[in-house]
Amino acid sequence: MHKQKITTSTNQYDVIVGKGILKDLKEYLPKQYRNILVITDSVVNELYTEKVVANLPNEAKVAVSVVPTGEASKSIEQYYQLLTEAIQHQLDRKSLIIALGGGMIGDLAGFVAATYMRGIDFIQVPTTILAHDSSVGGKVAINHPEGKNLIGNFYPPQAVLYDIDTLHSLPEKEKRSGYAEVVKHGFISDHAYLKDILDVDLTKEIEPIVMSDHLQKGIAVKAKIVEQDEKEANIRKFLNFGHTLGHAIESELGYGEITHGEAVAIGMLFAIRVSEQKIGSNLPYEALYNWLSNNHYPLDLPSISTIHLVERMKKDKKSENATVQMVLLQDIGEPVTENIPDQDLTNLLENFMRELGSK
C-alpha cells in the first residue's frame, strides 16, 4: 500500500493506492457516516458495488444510484436525477457520497456532492487507470453539448481509495485511455519516467508492480502541481497538455465515440507539432506516434471540420478573450502556455490533420 497526502488551500486528504483496498474500505473512511450514497455506472455496478456495500460500516444506511456507462452520462439530466435520488435517500450535510468508477463517475458524483445542500463529503474509489488523474485534484464537472466539463467546480474529495485489483478487469480500450494520461504526466515531468512508460506494451498484461509504480508517479506529478495551484490560476494549466484539441475532438465527434484518453493522445501529438513550430522545441514526436500506433490508438480520425475544431478549442476553459491558449513543451518536463492566433491555429491544425491522414 502506498499513501500520498494532498494538501491544498481548501483541504487535506490522502490518496491510498494498493491491492485489496475494497475489502477493507470502512477502515479508510475519514470519519463516521450514518447515510451513504454510492454512485456508479452500469458496468462497474455489476463488478464491484456488492463488494463495496458489504465492506461499509454496518450501522450506515447505504443506497446505490446507477447511471448508464459512458461519457454521455455526464449530462445535466443525469446530474439532476442523482440530486433527486440524494433527496429521496434523505442525505443530509453529514452524509457521504462514494464515487465508484472511472473518470466520468468521479466527475459526475463529485459535482453532485459539491452542489447538494451546498456541498457534502465525497470520496473517490477509482476503478480505471484514467481515474488516477481525474480522481486527484478536486475538479468535478458535467459536460455541455458545446464543450467538455464546462459546468463544474473545484471540490476536493475527503479521500481517494485506489484498489489496483480493479484494473485487471479493464478492456484494452480503457487501458489505452488511461495510459494516455500516464504518458501526459511523463511529458510534463521527467525524461526517465516518460521513457519507462513508452516501454510498456498495452496489448499484453502489465505487471502489477509496474502499473502501480506508473500510477503512483503520475499521482505525485499531479499532486505537486495541484498543491501549488488548486484552482488553475497558473501552473495547473500544464496538466491540460494534449487536452485542448483532445476535448474538441471528443465534443465534435460526440461524447463516447472516442475515449477521453484516445482523444488526448491525438491532442498530445498536435501539441508537440505546435511546440516544434511555434517555440522551436525538439521533442520525440515519432516515438510517441509509434507507441500509440503499436498500442492500437485510433489515429485515423473520420473527416472533421478544422473550422469546427478551432471553434470548439476557443470554448476551452483555458481560452482567454476567445483566443486559444495551448500547453506546449520547451522540452520534456518544461511545459509553458502559449496563446495561438486563430489563423495560425487553423494552419497548424490543417497541416497536422493532413499529416495524420497520410501516415
Rank of each mutant, 00 (worst) to 15 (best):
E181F: 10
V182T: 07
V183H: 08
V183P: 03
V183T: 09
K184M: 10
H185Q: 02
H185S: 09
G186D: 09
G186A: 11
F187N: 02
I188R: 03
I188F: 08
S189R: 13
S189D: 10
A192E: 14
A192K: 12
Y193K: 10
Y193D: 02
Y193V: 02
L194F: 11
K195F: 03
I197A: 11
I197L: 14
L198P: 06
L198I: 03
L198Y: 09
D199R: 13
D201M: 05
L202S: 06
L202K: 07
T203W: 10
K204P: 05
K204F: 12
K204S: 14
E205D: 14
I206A: 13
E207M: 08
E207A: 14
P208Q: 12
P208A: 12
P208V: 12
I209A: 15
V210D: 11
V210G: 05
V210K: 15
M211Y: 07
S212K: 15
S212W: 05
D213F: 04
D213V: 00
D213P: 04
H214V: 04
H214N: 12
H214L: 15
L215S: 06
L215F: 12
K217E: 09
K217C: 04
G218P: 14
I219R: 07
V221Y: 14
K224R: 12
E227M: 15
E227V: 04
Q228M: 12
E230I: 02
K231F: 03
K231I: 04
E232C: 05
E232R: 07
A233D: 00
N234Y: 05
I235M: 06
I235H: 03
R236Q: 00
F238Q: 01
F238K: 00
F238S: 05
F241Q: 00
G242R: 06
H243D: 01
T244D: 08
T244F: 11
L245W: 12
L245S: 08
G246F: 07
A248E: 05
I249P: 02
S251E: 08
E252D: 09
L253Y: 09
G254M: 11
G254K: 11
G254V: 10
G254N: 10
Y255G: 01
